[in-house]
Design a protein around this nucleic acid. Structure first.
Lengths: 316, 316
DNA sequence: GAGGGCAATGTTAGCGATAACATAAATAAA
DNA sequence: TTTATTTATGTTATCGCTAACATTGCCCTC
């Protein structure tokens, strides 16, 4: 018991005793068993996180932010990837709940009924990321993809473009992409510019080839398109490469805007005009929020909007 | 006890009993407590993984591979990021060992003494990734960064280049980068081409600005440089952008090669000539290896070389 | 029909920590 | 000095599972 106190509440132990215990710990190489501690205290100091994938650039920095902040607070991160599959997500949620995490962080937006039931029953703080749902399961940290899509389209229109296309993935699981597209349509309608010009490329995840074929499609169908807004920077890269292949000057012949402000979009990289989203900060804030809610500080905002930012560079 | 058997070894329970238990489980919303199970059975079904960062593109897909394979085998992934800091790594190792993981996966190559002591004492399988150390702590999955650096330099020399530069980060913690550079130097020496031309850009992690300033540096110092080998695709992107800024044609005036075969390097992206490394496969194989070793199958290879591949595209 | 073998289920005793309470020692107050 | 109060440490029971062993009932064999 004294050892337990030395580790958890050293100020309740006489300094001299404390020292002796520490010495013994070092000498024996004792490493406390957190699983036993969790069983007894009913606090696991584990936070679970579910992401669709880390590869696609969007969530990697969010997980970095999460992991870093949790570590600073003495928590650990249990991670699972769902590969965009709701069934895998549901299984992973069940598996995580079996570890009795003190909170759960989700980046997907679609849950199976089973998943929803499990989450409701769990009675732990749950934070949804990268979007601001109307009715979050518990709380959410992110920004409005729809507003961001709208803002970038407005930006392009303000620059004088009269024909603005959109390139995105058509996956029904990518609700955020759909929302950006909805924002794009909102802006067109608000300005009564023209009917939406959307290139929906089949497939999961973003990659440059979608941008290349998307741009080709747009230019064939609507010749007078002078600007395209891509649902991610990866797609924008593909569009950029297709434009170059066609001998089009960017941004003079065709303006190209991305989404995400990935590393490659930077001034010394593609110098891509894009929407900067606070990926790392979302992770940090999610960690803080889930821990605060776990400590019963229920007074906090349930929906945290971290905003976004149009970054004007050379391509639009 | 019967419930436990239904969950772990259903074939030891009469089908009828099995069904009744399952029904009760569903009705009650029972979720077993794995922490208690781990305490009792001394198997946690958790594998810990330590990476420097997920943001830099290199490790994200490895973690994807790990996570996916572990899930398929009924294991869970405890993840920590070390931010390139050995002290944080040591702390994180200690924190992970407190969860009694069934194995540990490391992507860093430098460990503090404390970390090494902890790892030795832990008596669990440990897999090091992304390099093939001479004396692994336990076992390793990766490829030879030195051989890869050598191969790409050979490739450029074979293409007729007489002045070949190298751009990389100078961080002492990035041992893999150093090894690629060593491979570059090996190749130059083997062909007695010229003294190494290295642009070492200060800072942690790769980003395009390093490539831009690196290329500027190389061209200023050694005017007759016609090819550069970059320690990562991100750096290569920066070099590409600097070349364009200077009006140099790629690859005619200057050939540029990267490392990693990130998504952006693809045919429809930068079409970058680069070294493809099996990031995802490393994660998968690490998961398999750590589980096999945990099951006492000690007969397996301790060092798994997954190789690399020169991918010739448009920039060199 | 006694004994051996097997399959299905039950019982007991931990795993290693901590919450809650009990005690002992040290200090303050009356 | 005696009693109250605080501070430091010790005891006990428990968290929810599973390893190991015990029991029950059934079928089979000789």
């Amino acid at each position: 018991m004294t050892v337990s106190r030395v580790l958890r509440t050293p100020d309740k132990v006489r300094p001299e005793t404390c020292r002796r215990v520490q010495a013994a710990i070092r000498k024996l190489g004792y490493v406390p068993d957190e699983a036993a501690g969790a069983l007894s205290s009913r606090r696991s100091r584990i936070i679970g996180a579910l992401v669709s994938t880390l590869g696609g650039s969007f969530f990697a920095s969010t997980v970095d932010g999460l992991s870093q902040t949790l570590r600073e607070q003495g928590y650990q991160l249990l991670l699972a990837t769902t590969n965009y599959t709701p069934e895998i997500e549901a299984d992973s949620i069940a598996a995580m709940l079996a570890r009795r995490p003190d909170g759960l962080v989700l980046t997907s937006t679609q849950h199976t009924d089973m998943a929803n039931r499990l989450l409701k029953r769990a009675r732990i703080p749950i934070v949804e990321l990268w979007e601001l749902p109307e009715a979050p399961i518990d709380s959410a940290v992110g920004f409005s993809n729809r507003a961001a899509g709208n803002a970038m389209t407005e930006f392009l229109a303000d620059a004088g473009h009269k024909g603005i296309g959109f390139i995105g993935r058509s996956s029904p699981f990518d609700r955020r992409g759909q929302l950006r597209r909805a924002g794009y349509k909102d802006a067109l309608a608000a300005r009564s510019l023209h009917a939406p010009r959307v290139a929906s490329v089949a497939g999961l995840g973003d990659d440059p080839s979608a941008g290349a074929s998307g741009l080709a499609h747009l230019l064939m169908r609507w010749e007078d398109t002078t600007a395209v807004f891509c649902a991610s920077d990866s797609i924008a890269l593909g569009a950029l490469s297709e434009a170059r292949r066609r001998g089009l000057r960017v941004p003079d012949d065709i303006a190209i805007a991305g989404f995400g402000d990935f590393e490659m979009a930077s001034e010394n990289g593609l110098a891509l005009t894009t929407v900067r989203v606070p990926g790392f900060a979302i992770g940090e804030e999610a960690a803080r929020l889930v821990l605060r809610r776990g400590n019963g500080e229920a007074t906090h905002k349930r929906i945290v909007d971290l905003g976004f930012q149009i970054v004007r560079r050379m391509t639009a």
